[in-house]
Design a protein around this nucleic acid. Structure first.
Lengths: 127, 127
DNA sequence: GCATCATTCAACCAAATGGTTGAGGGTTGT
DNA sequence: ACAACCCTCAACCATTTGGTTGAATGATGC
């Protein structure tokens, strides 16, 4: 079901759409933060927020569709918990860009000749 | 003008809103990818895409407002380049959650019974 | 069986998003 | 001066988003 690692071809970046979109909302990030401290029932998760339970339910659904959380349905309550694997995949995506820049800023900057190679990254020789 | 590190108030997560939102669009991610290989003029950047130049201009503006790119205005052309620092800040945010889970998956994973209890799994780093 | 709690579904709304086209506004070249 | 070029601004449109309320579903408790 999850394709971050598997069919990661040009088409299936869709999951990144969902993940980053899910993370672009402060309420949902707050939910992620809360869930990072342990699972919780929906009503419990909703309590701190100044909006209807339904709103939170929708936010959780958004997070779920992004595979950022999973639900454990136990009777009449459903317990949500973080699925950090997806978070890691998102981070891995960012890593493609931040890593190279970390190097550039650090040490690579000076002994980096302009590599006009075919595919590989070429450090922006900026400013 | 950038507050990722400084005023970490509840409100100022706004920049994360912008960054993650900016990254939630495939066109904009493609632009980021392209820019990671070096700066480029707007028309040049727009060429590979199947949409109007104006659309790309707007996407670039979104990326700019998120501090993900910066513009260098040279005469009638404006050259965009990646500002990976912001990308790094976003990654740092994710790191709060993925780091702790990396551990969990690695070592903690096996002696970790399914903790469906309300107890809590493992205190993730707060803040 | 019936009321109640926990959660989701459905309809609705205002606002934002992603795209279009068309009109400018500077810059450059002749 | 003038046309061509690069890019942004403005208006517009369809669709999505984030929120609301109200009803429906389903498990629990009396």
């Amino acid at each position: 079901m999850k394709e971050p690692g598997s069919a990661a071809r040009a088409d299936s970046e869709e999951w990144l759409d969902r993940v980053f979109h899910a993370l672009s909302d402060p309420t949902r990030r707050a939910l992620v933060r809360r869930l990072s401290a342990g699972p919780g029932k929906v009503t419990e998760l909703a309590k701190p927020f100044d909006m209807s339970l339904n709103a939170i339910s929708k936010h959780l659904k958004t997070l779920e569709k992004a595979d950022l959380i999973k639900r454990d349905n136990a009777g009449r309550t459903s317990v949500c918990s973080l699925d950090a694997e997806t978070l890691q995949h998102a981070q891995a995506w960012l890593d493609q860009y931040t890593r190279f820049w970390g190097e550039t800023l650090d040490s690579l900057g000076r002994h980096m000749k302009r590599r006009t190679g075919p595919g590989r990254s070429r450090p922006a020789g900026r400013r």
